[in-house]
Design a protein around this nucleic acid. Sequence first.
DNA 1: TAGTGGTCTAGACCACTCA
DNA 2: GAGTGGTCTAGACCACTAT
Lengths: 236, 236
Amino acid sequence: MIKYQQIAIEIEKYIEDHALQQGDKLPVLETLMTQFQVSKSTITKSLDMLEKKGVVFQVRGSGIFVRRHKRRGYISLLSNQGFKKDLEDFNITSKVIELEVRKPTQEAAYNLNIELDADVYYVKRVRYINGQTLCLEESFYNKSIITYLNNEIVSESIFHYIREGLGIKVGFSDKYLHVDKLKEEEAKYLGLKKGEPGLYDETIFHLTNGQPFDFSKITYNYEQSQFFIQANSHFL
Amino acid sequence: MIKYQQIAIEIEKYIEDHALQQGDKLPVLETLMTQFQVSKSTITKSLDMLEKKGVVFQVRGSGIFVRRHKRRGYISLLSNQGFKKDLEDFNITSKVIELEVRKPTQEAAYNLNIELDADVYYVKRVRYINGQTLCLEESFYNKSIITYLNNEIVSESIFHYIREGLGIKVGFSDKYLHVDKLKEEEAKYLGLKKGEPGLYDETIFHLTNGQPFDFSKITYNYEQSQFFIQANSHFL
DNA sequence: TAGTGGTCTAGACCACTCA
DNA sequence: GAGTGGTCTAGACCACTAT
């Protein structure tokens, strides 16, 4: 494990274990340097990571402080994978509606940057949170990258399998959101009525080398889902 | 201007001026170091910023590549200020419904971390994009920080005034989103019908020292608004 | 003005990609 | 194995905060 990651993890763990609150002060750089026996740059890098993750904020001339948002049960829109992490305390389950190898739709081919006659794994699932319908999900996986899926994998966390089972490193993702009225079929799966609100999420996941491998369309049940995003002003 | 910021700006400008596309390769670190006459760490810092901003992605052993999402007209949920920036090509206007100093609601006091008898500027606006209603916005500004507002300021970009006029540095923000059916009054302002979908955004803006100064509640017209978020996997 | 974080350097060494 | 990005160091100096 890389030093700055390890340190970041330990600092975050320290904050959780001691139940520190927003605004609580962490030890100064000097102290952290000697405590972890690393150079200033390394500590700085750790803290930058934690700042980016929304765990701390640093104030020049003053100190390093804990950042905590006040609301629980919100899904992070930055997690870049399933929402397992944010909702650890909740019971997430899935029902697989469809799983097959097929040709991509035009939209999927475009977003995955593949030909119309390439193969994709098509997965359609309904996901539940504490027994309530959370969302309807349709995913297209580039089969030349995600070479194998089966019903068992797809019933659990697909991303866990991709990462651990296939050893694939996920790079970055582009997420597009909009709100609209539910169509008849979507409403049916979500246990809602046609015309009720739905949050539509389209996300394209890329490998570390920039190649798209997953195009997912998710429709959220508005009654069960709320989201949060922590932003920093560090980029203009 | 700090070196790494300046370099980041220049690289981004280079990408735009040359209309580089997703996957296009930038010069290698060595080249950038000599070109900008700075050390490796400085270039690295610039590139890390651009990576965080979703402008490039770096692949170890391979190179530095341009990252571009394909869709235009989406509002970035990370911009941490008005959406002026993303929608530069669009004509954003505002109609001020209400502007006054008052006592905060319980909710506003909680989120701004102030007493119920403190003073806040209350601003209610409808915002338009190309003449269509984009959103209804209610904001509470801690008056001990945002000491003065008037009708003219509030008709324009409030954040521009806060930054330039008051010289206040914005630190970070916590944004919470959910979807629901519009209430009668909200629908009226947005030119929609009661019960139609609405996207509700609550954001708390903080100073660089962590103090909240703005609590804003925005209801978006679902017909006019779409959003995007670029995520990196650099934090686990 | 003391304390604290931010920027920058020069250079060593490591880890991954790709031909 | 050559090329390229990532990690880490030790130390100088700068900029902001608090008192």
